[in-house]
Amino acid sequence: MRPRPTTPTVVAKVIAAADPKPESRYLAGATAGRFAVLRRIAPAGAFGNSLRPLNRMTGSPST
Rank of each mutant, 00 (worst) to 15 (best):
L54P: 03
A12D: 07
R40G: 10
R4A: 15
L27H: 07
A36M: 00
D19M: 06
P43Y: 07
K21T: 09
K13I: 00
G59Y: 02
R52L: 07
G48E: 12
G59Q: 05
A28C: 04
V37M: 03
P53M: 05
A46P: 13
F47D: 05
A46Y: 13
S60N: 13
G33M: 06
R4Q: 14
S60T: 15
K13C: 07
F47N: 12
R2H: 14
T31A: 09
S62P: 09
T58V: 10
R40C: 04
G29M: 03
A17M: 03
N55L: 10
R34D: 10
K21P: 04
G33Q: 01
N49H: 13
Y26M: 05
P43M: 10
I41A: 08
G33Y: 03
P43C: 11
P53H: 04
L38H: 13
P3Y: 01
V37F: 06
I15W: 06
A32I: 00
F47R: 07
R4N: 14
T63K: 15
A18E: 03
P22C: 11
R39S: 10
P8R: 02
P61L: 04
R2M: 13
T7I: 08
S60E: 15
P53V: 02
G45V: 09
E23K: 15
G29D: 07
M1G: 15
L38K: 06
K13M: 05
T9N: 12
G59N: 01
A16W: 00
R2P: 13
S62Y: 14
E23S: 11
S62I: 03
R40H: 06
R34F: 05
G33V: 00
L38D: 06
K21A: 14
A30I: 05
P53G: 07
K13R: 09
A42Y: 06
V14S: 01
K21I: 01
G45C: 13
F47P: 02
T6V: 07
A28Q: 02
V14P: 05
V37K: 12
V11S: 11
V10L: 10
P5D: 06
R52G: 14
V10S: 13
T58M: 09
A16Q: 02
R34I: 03
S62W: 05
I15T: 05
I15Q: 01
V14L: 01
R25P: 00
T31I: 03
T63E: 14
A36Y: 00
N55R: 14
R52S: 14
T7M: 07
P53D: 09
M1A: 12
M1Q: 11
P8A: 09
R2C: 11
R25L: 02
P5I: 00
A16V: 00
A46Q: 13
M57G: 09
P5R: 06
